[in-house]
Each structure stands twice: as structure tokens, then as C-alpha cells.
């Protein structure tokens, strides 16, 4: 029983790490632009396919593949911002319009991937071979790498937003565009940086996930939905709350899979999300209004 529980918690930690990386990317875009990017999961998928093409089809190695995937996701993210988000800045229906345009981007990217890479399942080799035992529960070394990397990346993003000049400028733009532009911050550039950074994060997550799950055009949809539950649960405003919520949701999901099975878990998670929305509309860790 204890062994099962430990194994479940460890698998929850792996899921939590994945959701933390996804949700923190969404949070960066939300806090800077006030936009919810529905193409975030598709950017993850683009990166995984590019990483596969570079490392497997071209034979340039996995590390080069992951770097190429991450960069390509960042590039596609910046293009999406420029073509599908930027034209609507200042529009009073911007939030609603960008829900539609980023959803459109998701569909375009998924269908394009189907045309370019086909429907055959693909998978990347693991960055590190072997297995690691945590309190008796065994996970692959690659999954352990994801677990270790996630908090490091989150701390790096947090430090970037708090300590660096560019990071502080992103926060300033997110809080008061008028004042930020008055003191000479290039607001358009800040938006592009936020979108690119968020997309790069999605890209890195996707490339790492490509070794654990199959790479398909819709591989980003399910993590995106889970990341949405995370941001609703934790509130979108703060990176720390979002990351904390990601681990909580990951562990809850793993426990639900153990108790209810795979079939009923999404139902229970969405029920939880509805309950949170009813009683704490700003999230469990978000402030009350």
C-alpha cells in the first residue's frame, strides 16, 4: 500500500513538473499582455516535431534537436504574437478576440503538423537512459530530469522577472502600459519578449515530453487543458502560485488515477475546477476581490 502511494506521488511529481512548465508559460503571457494563449500546447507539439526531425531524421543528435525545437517554438510564438495578437492591442474586446485567434493558431499548427509530419506516431530517444528509484518507486532517468529541471527553470524565470532589467520592464508593462511607455519602455518589444519566452518554455517542455509520450499533432491539447485547470486553481497572476498549483494538481491527478481510474479522472478534475471557480473565482492561492 505504501509502495503504491509513493509510486503515485512520484508519478504526480512528474505530471506536476510538466504542468508547472506549461502553466508558468501561460502565466508569463497573461501577466504581461492580459492574453490567454490557446496555442501554447500546439507550440509544445511544434517543438517536439522539430526536435524529432533534427535529431532523428537529420541525425544531428538529441541535444541539437531539443535546442532547435525550443528555438522554433519561440519563433512561431513571436510570429503568432505579431500576426494574430498584436493587431488587436487596445481593442476593448481584445481578450475575447485573442481567445479566437490563438485557438485558430492552434488548429492551423495542428493541421499543418499533420500535413508536414503525417499521422504516424513518433518518439524521441531519452536524453538519459536508465532508471532512478525514489523511495522505492522507479521512474526513468529522463522523467527524473524533467522533475529536477522544472523547479530550476521556474526559479530562473522568477529571478529573470525580479532581478533583470528586461524582466522588471515586462512586469511594469503588464501593470501599467501607459506609464511604461511614458518612461521609454518599448511595449511592443516587451510583448514579443513575453510571448517568445513563454513559447520557448512550451518548446522545451514539448521536446522533453517527446521522449516520454508519443509525438502527435494533438499531443499539446491534453497538457494545455490540464494547465488551464492549474491556472484556474492557482490564479494566473503569480508565477509562484501557478507553479504551486501545478504540483498540487499533478499529485491530485495521480491519486485520482489510482482511486478512480483513468476514465473518471478528467471528470473529477473538471468537477474540482468548477468547485474552485464557484467558491474562489481568483483561485485557491489568488487573493479575494
Amino acid at each position: 500500500m505504501i509502495d503504491t502511494l509513493i509510486a503515485t506521488l512520484v508519478s504526480g511529481l512528474v505530471l506536476g513538473s510538466l504542468y508547472a512548465l506549461m502553466a508558468s508559460g501561460l502565466s508569463v503571457v497573461w501577466t504581461t499582455l492580459g492574453v490567454f494563449n490557446f496555442s501554447h500546447g500546439a507550440l509544445m507539439m511544434v517543438s517536439a516535431f522539430v526536435a524529432w526531425t533534427v535529431s532523428e531524421a537529420l541525425g544531428l543528435g538529441l541535444l541539437v534537436g531539443i535546442a532547435a525545437g525550443t528555438l522554433s517554438a519561440a519563433l512561431v510564438g513571436i510570429i503568432i504574437e505579431r500576426l494574430l495578437v498584436r493587431p488587436f492591442y487596445g481593442d476593448r474586446n481584445m481578450l475575447l478576440i485573442t481567445v479566437m485567434t490563438t485557438l485558430a493558431a492552434m488548429i492551423i499548427l495542428e493541421k499543418s503538423a499533420l500535413i508536414i509530419w503525417g499521422a504516424r506516431l513518433k518518439q524521441l530517444p531519452r536524453l538519459i537512459e536508465g532508471e532512478i528509484s525514489i523511495f522505492g518507486a522507479t521512474i526513468s532517468a529522463h522523467e527524473a530530469l524533467l522533475v529536477a529541471l522544472a523547479p530550476l527553470l521556474l526559479i530562473a524565470i522568477w529571478q529573470f522577472t525580479v532581478r533583470s532589467t528586461v524582466g522588471r520592464s515586462l512586469r511594469a508593462v503588464g501593470q501599467n502600459q501607459e506609464s511604461a511607455s511614458l518612461i521609454g519602455i518599448d511595449v511592443s518589444k516587451a510583448f514579443a519578449i513575453a510571448f517568445g519566452l513563454s513559447a520557448a518554455l512550451a518548446g522545451l517542455t514539448g521536446a522533453l515530453l517527446g521522449s516520454i509520450r508519443f509525438i502527435t499533432p494533438t499531443m499539446g491539447s491534453e497538457p494545455l487543458v490540464k494547465a488551464m485547470i492549474v491556472v484556474i486553481f492557482g490564479g494566473l497572476g503569480s508565477l509562484g502560485a501557478t507553479a504551486g498549483a501545478a504540483y498540487v494538481i499533478g499529485i491530485i491527478e495521480a491519486l485520482l488515477i489510482l482511486w478512480l481510474g483513468l476514465y473518471w479522472t478528467p471528470f473529477a478534475l473538471f468537477l474540482l475546477m468548477i468547485v474552485v471557480l464557484v467558491f474562489r473565482p481568483n483561485g485557491i492561492f489568488g487573493g479575494r476581490e
Binding site: R168, R171, A172, G237
Partner: peptide, 29 residues
């Protein structure tokens, strides 16, 4: 100028607010 606003950047502290202005408007590093 200043504005008739409650706080310029509600989620930045005083040090951070001034650092952003000093960097971008004051050209300091």
C-alpha cells in the same frame, strides 16, 4: 508627469518602481 492613479505599478515595490524608471527614463544601469 504623474497621473491621478492609485499606484503606478501595483505589484512592484518602491525600489523596483524607481529602478525601472531610472533604467529606461534615466538611462542608468
Amino acid at each position: 508627469r504623474t497621473f491621478q492613479k492609485d499606484a503606478e505599478y501595483p505589484d512592484l515595490d518602491a525600489n523596483e518602481t524607481l529602478l525601472v524608471s531610472a533604467t529606461y527614463n534615466g538611462g542608468l544601469r
